[in-house]
């Protein structure tokens, strides 16, 4: 074991971690937003909203993420005639992919709220949007939080796939250091530790929120 290899390259690898976090946060924000829209469309009685959204969700949930990344990165130049920046390609792929998962979490959350709530809101003259905004979503969000946090943790892990198109995120940088230093055991154990710590924090938050919810519902 030569742990010095880690301290020697600490800064370089940490730079990758910043990119990883950046990727995860942008994906989280974009994925949630698109996910909410998709979920609403999936719950809509209008078939021109329901069917495209359903096809989208099933399509992306049926593919491995790595394939989506390849498609976006290698096919978009064929279509648009210009090559896509790696970071942008990764972000587009992640958001396109993760929003399908978010959409299902959000749809289930919204459907967990009894129908009477929407009826009461509508009967007082609230529009469908106001009903969603003030009555349904605040309650649904509470039910969804554990699943959303879990998905956020998954996103954090998934960003490592950015390396396939040459994105120098955390894992790719560890990989580069290893190519130079030939210290696979130490370096990949370190990488595992970093992912483990971050994901544990996420799981812990999720558990806390679940416990708090149980207390609240008493």
């Amino acid at each position: 074991m030569d742990l010095a290899v880690i301290t020697r390259n600490f800064e370089f690898m940490l730079g990758g971690l910043a990119l990883t976090i950046q990727l995860a946060l942008i994906t989280l924000a974009g994925g949630l937003l698109l996910g909410i829209l998709l979920a609403m469309a999936r719950l809509s009685p209008r078939s021109w909203l329901y069917y495209p959204a359903s096809v989208y969700v099933h399509f992306f949930r049926g593919l491995p993420l790595i394939l989506v990344i390849f498609w976006i990165y290698f096919l978009s130049p064929v279509i648009t005639g210009r090559s896509l920046d790696e970071f942008l390609a990764a972000i587009i792929s992640f958001i396109a992919f993760e929003s399908a998962y978010f959409a299902e979490i959000i749809r289930a959350g919204i459907q967990s709220i009894p129908r009477g709530q929407a009826m009461a809101a509508h009967s007082s003259g609230l529009t469908s949007f106001q009903c969603m905004r003030f009555v349904i979503l605040p309650q649904a969000m509470r039910n969804m939080i554990p699943a959303l946090v879990t998905q956020a943790v998954v996103i954090f892990q998934d960003t490592s796939l950015g390396y396939v198109i040459g994105l120098r995120e955390f894992l790719r940088r560890v990989n580069l250091v290893d190519a130079r230093e030939a210290r696979s055991v130490e370096l990949y154990l370190f990488a595992g530790l970093v992912y483990f710590v971050f994901c544990s924090i996420g799981s812990l938050c999720s558990q806390r929120l679940e416990n708090r919810q149980e207390r609240d519902s008493l």
Binding site: G116, Q117, M119, A120, S123, G125, T127, P138
Partner: peptide
């Protein structure tokens, strides 16, 4: 929406907003 705002409704299971 205007019509409903002039017609109050009370339900069997109350349907108060719990939050």
């Amino acid at each position: 929406h205007k019509l409903r705002s002039d017609v109050g409704m009370v339900f069997q299971h109350f349907e108060l907003y719990p939050h």
